[in-house]
Simulated assay, not measured.
Amino acid sequence: MRIIVYTALMLWAINSHGLTFQASVEETEWRLSPSIFECEFVQPIPNYGEAVFYHEAGEDLMFHLKTKKNLMGQGEAALHIEPPIWGPSRFALDLGLVAIHQSSVPLKVDPGRANHMMQALMKGMQPTFTRKARYDENEPIRVSLSAANFNSFYKDYLGCVAGLLPVNFRQVAKSKVLFKGGGDYLDAESKKKLDLIILYVKADPKVKALYIDGHSDSSGRRYNNRRLSESRALKVSDYMVKKGIDPGMLTTRYHGERYPVASNKTRAGRELNRRVTIRLEKEDEDMEVEF
């Protein structure tokens, strides 16, 4: 039944006219907001809002629409790739359905289809969303991206993507390194993870503090475990300082076996408890203390 409904909706979307929002060739513009943290590639859509390709550091490409007043009815919009008016002999291609929400960002498109949309624009095709109107079920609303001038700005977008950091704040804000065996040795995998954190901290002036907490499993005496957790925390902080992190940003603590994250009764659990956690804190941003 869903396949029948979906097929009917796609045919209605492709063949309907309704109220269309799209920049003309003369009006079409692309705006790139580049940084090492994100690339935002935007096409203003007259009388509607903005079509936004968004590529964050460490993530894949996403797409969303922005509008001050959403005219699409809640439900699912049909997403299809249409030929431009000067190339009507080319076939339309459907990319499925996209959920519509009543907000200033009424729809978001996943990375796979967002990349497909961008490839279509490179070929001169027009990604188009169609959904019945919010206030009139018989009136389709169409929002279509113009491919005009796209390739002229695409190179600038690629340059922005090439300059992105390999990670974003969410990916490094709460991290941990594990210590195999019973020692305090930082292996190559741990150093690679720490290097990414260090790279991000150096690039983002909003990071104001790093909290480094050492832990152990419950094997052995508590006193020895506490000293071992201290040694592990100091190995991490010393590594970061040697790599250029300001020691004044670091708060180093050690807790022994007091805060296990897994059972110490199993080998796998003990391996998870032998750890150092690293938490980053930004200006004007309160984060939960996590050991």
Rank of each mutant, 00 (worst) to 15 (best):
D136N: 15
M118A: 11
A51Y: 06
F37E: 04
N138Y: 13
T67V: 12
Q74Y: 07
F169N: 12
S104P: 02
M72Y: 05
D246P: 12
A13K: 08
L107K: 02
K282M: 13
N70L: 06
K68A: 06
L234V: 01
E271Q: 13
C160V: 12
H101F: 06
T67P: 06
D213L: 02
S144P: 00
G182S: 12
A78D: 03
S152R: 11
E27T: 04
A51N: 10
F291W: 12
E137L: 09
L210Y: 01
R2Q: 07
W12I: 08
A92N: 14
K66H: 11
E139D: 09
E59M: 15
L65R: 09
R222G: 13
N47L: 05
E137A: 12
D217T: 04
E288W: 02
F91K: 15
F37D: 10
L158V: 07
E59S: 14
Y223G: 06
A268L: 13
G214M: 02
S24W: 07
Y6F: 05
P106H: 11
C39F: 00
Q22V: 13
D60V: 02
G58H: 07
M125G: 05
G124K: 10
R253L: 14
E59W: 07
E76F: 10
T266W: 06
L199I: 01
F91T: 15
L280W: 00
Y157T: 10
E281N: 05
S16L: 08
Y259P: 11
D60E: 14
R142T: 08
Y185E: 00
L32T: 12
R279F: 02
L11I: 14
G49C: 09
D204M: 01
S104E: 06
L32D: 10
P84Q: 10
F63D: 09
L95H: 12
G181E: 05
A77S: 07
G220E: 10
E40T: 12
L272S: 15
V5P: 04
V105M: 12
